[in-house]
Simulated scan of single mutants.
Amino acid sequence: MTRIVFVLFPGVTQLDMTGPAQFLSRLPGSTTIVAAPSADAVRTDCGFALVPAAAFADTPQADILCVPGGHGVADALECNETIDFIRRQAAGAKWVTSVCTGAFLLGRAGLLEGKRATTHWAYAHLLERVGAMHEPGRVVEDGQTITAGGVTAGIDFALTLIAREAGEDWAKAIQLSLEYDPHPPFDAGTPVAAGAARTEALKARVYTAAAERMAEALKRSQ
């Protein structure tokens, strides 16, 4: 049985977790466990809550550890219970993975030192603060560590990992089963595609302050 453990914290971006979970849960012979400091419901950044399956203390050893991101990462960086759990689980896991800004929780746990990694484009410049070397891409593999870019890249990461574990044919079957065939109505999903003006406007409205908060949290937690 392959145990897939997702780490949950307040302010998580639910799609960072639920996207890959939907795909990875179909990995043959697997079970999915969502873990948090306690068994209480955890509020996501969408306004609704998710209920973990286990408290950290009761979570069995993961074969696949997945750490999602979200605006709540800045606070989670300073939660020693969460960081210690990630570090302990990673020590015995076959795969250590993250989606979006979850990479900074891996880094805070000392798991990205000297590794190539990716994250959401608005935070990529901060990866060096946790010892990682930024490599652009939706999915970046470095040994048994896999990091995914922002939010929706978690689905690509999940398919990549399924192919590593069960073969490409199985990954393609799951892709077909879930009809993952993205054709977005707009071509604005990356800074390059969106253009400098739109990217800078979004950064000014959302991400400049968010990245500064992340940088301060990283500084305090080191």
Rank of each mutant, 00 (worst) to 15 (best):
V5P: 06
V5N: 08
F6T: 06
V7I: 14
V12T: 06
T13D: 13
T13P: 05
T18L: 15
P20N: 01
P20R: 02
P20H: 03
A21H: 06
L24P: 00
P28M: 09
P28I: 10
I33S: 07
V34N: 05
P37Q: 15
A41S: 13
V42G: 02
D45C: 14
G47T: 00
A49I: 04
L50I: 09
L50E: 15
V51W: 11
A54E: 14
D58C: 06
P60R: 03
A62C: 05
A62G: 06
L65G: 02
C66G: 10
C66S: 12
L77Q: 01
I83Y: 02
I83K: 00
I83H: 01
D84S: 14
I86Y: 05
R87W: 11
R88F: 14
R88L: 12
G92H: 11
V96D: 02
V96G: 01
V99C: 09
T101R: 04
T101Y: 04
T101M: 05
A103H: 02
R108Q: 10
G114D: 03
K115L: 14
A122E: 05
Y123H: 06
H125I: 07
L126S: 11
L126F: 09
R129Y: 10
R129C: 08
V130E: 15
G131M: 09
H134V: 07
E135P: 00
E135S: 12
R138P: 09
V140F: 01
E141D: 09
G143C: 02
Q144C: 13
T145W: 02
V151F: 04
G154Q: 05
T160K: 08
E165V: 15
E168H: 11
K172R: 15
I174Q: 09
Q175W: 10
L176F: 13
L176I: 12
R198G: 07
T199K: 07
E200Y: 08
E200V: 13
R205N: 08
A209I: 10
A209Y: 11
E212K: 07
R213N: 12
R220K: 12
S221E: 06
